[in-house]
Design a protein around this nucleic acid. Structure first.
Lengths: 300, 300
DNA sequence: TACATTATTGTCTAAACGACAATAATGTAC
DNA sequence: GTACATTATTGTCGTTTAGACAATAATGTA
């Protein structure tokens, strides 16, 4: 029995909820699926599906099996791709996920260059601050703040992600420049909302962490819009240094200095990481984009 | 093409280094393996093996593929077993790995009861302090000190693993009973060697950790032998409380008290954990032993 | 250089899978 | 409550694919 074929049939039936629709996907008659899945059930000694002529239900054990089989089929596909693309030119679809702000400002311009170097790679870029589940599916490389989630994932530190406090000169003229961290609480705050909630303003004084956040006048997950609010003099904002270069150069925003410095997390190792599955580095398209991004971003 | 069959053939050839020996394992002629593997290579567009009539070598990409295929075949086997044994009586081989000391003292007596309850389960017990790689292979449940290695593994806290300092009454009469931790450095130490090295004696004073280990007179990975050395009055030993019950009851060894207390690790969460793969709890034999051990050890 | 061992190839047979038609079952609409 | 349309299953046949066995070619060793 070709179990792999049976597993693919079974998976598709679970997904479509129908033998006929699943059969269309494989361009074979439904009778083939019926036979193969029946064989599979016989060899496992359990019913995976509860059939009637109108609906197909997945049994409890069928659902368990389906979830595990999904992972197995996915892994096999990836392994096959690794071998197939071995010592070939970088080709195919490459799915990249990135932090939204970083993506807009730094990644997309770089990818335009990348596209010229590797015209056979079809890019699929997803900008979002949500954590994509690297490894289980859907993404070849991801750019994230934070740290490696597990041992299968390689994390390359691309650059610092130091958050610095800034405000418009007019705002500081009007409200005064805060001399120490605790004065911030008398100011107005513009906050970046991460999936984990708005970023607080933290300060470590004598080994103890203090939240010195000012009352919020605006919270958003759009760093572009927040920047405009800050330029308009609505309040103080903490944002990654790399996202503020234009504003600081033009003088539209000024950096505020505190001693000790402010941060948005107790973790000192905040940085931008490039994540990919170790074993997938053998796939030329993955190797190409990793090498390219590391060379262009890290070594500056 | 039945890729799964081809993968099994390929794996066995890699392992045996020979088409003939691999063919024997499947009771088919070598020509079958030759044809299936050739098909596989053709479909992947890469050479996995470098053949001559005398030796079979695995190519670079073949080794990569082999490692990944290994995991896939193993996972599929486990998933199949989950389904096959679903709603059946606990049967089959059950592989248990345990810390050596804990295994001898507590686990083996319990397993004798377990064998009576589940006569169809064939136990395969491995006592060792080496870390077995749960998940990738070879073990159904493991008992370890420490913490859950990753998200696939369920860790159930079985009992405390507090290390306490003890010595023989004669030793203390001769050498004096240390009044505070730092006096220990003038004593003699018996050390348990873990795979990570001998366990130091640590003490946290005013937020700072101090190593107060005494010079070693003996180091061993045999807790039994170390215990005998301690009884013989050769020095002070730190060992898990559960392993010392007999000695303390009989008065052969006395507990030493310090304020603050001594420990062997900066991690306060030292405990004995029962580890198993989450999804394998569905396999009756695994569920049986997990439920049994948790009930008999945890709820005391 | 001869030999034994080993992988491959050719040919036949058996098993497995797909195609197509016919049948049985069931949810829905009236 | 009944008729109908949709859908999964089953029977039969043809095609594809894998295994058995013998013959061949290749290669490391003695």
């Amino acid at each position: 029995m070709d179990q792999l074929r049976a597993l693919r049939y079974f998976s598709k039936v679970v997904e479509t909820g129908s033998f006929t629709r699943a059969a269309e996907a494989f361009s074979v008659p439904p009778s083939s699926l019926s036979r193969r899945i029946a064989d599979l059930e016989k060899s496992l000694g359990a019913n995976l599906l509860k059939r009637s002529t109108r609906v197909v239900q997945v049994t409890e054990i069928g659902q368990v099996y389906y979830r595990q089989v999904q992972g197995i089929l996915f892994q096999l596909e990836q392994s096959d791709e690794t071998v197939r693309s071995y010592q070939a030119n970088p080709t195919g679809q490459l799915r990249i996920s990135s932090l939204a702000g970083f993506g807009e400002r730094l990644l997309l311009p770089l990818l335009n260059e990348f596209k010229v170097l590797y015209p056979d790679i079809i890019l699929d870029v997803n900008l979002s601050d949500e954590l994509s589940t690297l490894g289980s599916d859907d993404v070849d490389v991801a750019i994230r703040g934070g740290y490696a989630p597990n041992e299968w994932v390689q994390a390359v530190r691309l650059m610092n992600n130091e958050f610095i406090p800034v405000a418009a000169p007019e705002y500081l003229k009007k409200m005064g420049t805060p001399k120490n961290a605790f004065e911030l609480r008398q100011h107005k705050g513009l906050y970046f909302r991460t999936p984990a909630g708005p970023n607080p303003w933290l300060c470590e004084i004598e080994g103890e962490w203090h939240d010195v956040s000012a009352p919020a006048v605006a919270v958003s997950n759009s760093s572009k819009w927040l920047g405009e609010q800050a330029v308009a003099g609505l309040g103080i904002m903490m944002a990654p240094r790399w996202s503020l270069a234009d504003y600081l150069d033009s003088g539209e925003l000024e950096q505020l200095f505190f001693d000790p410095a402010l941060s948005v997390s107790q973790n000192p190792d905040m940085a931008i990481y490039l994540l990919y599955q170790k074993q997938r580095y053998l796939v030329p398209k993955v190797k190409a984009v990793v090498d390219f991004l590391v060379a262009r971003i890290k070594n500056v």
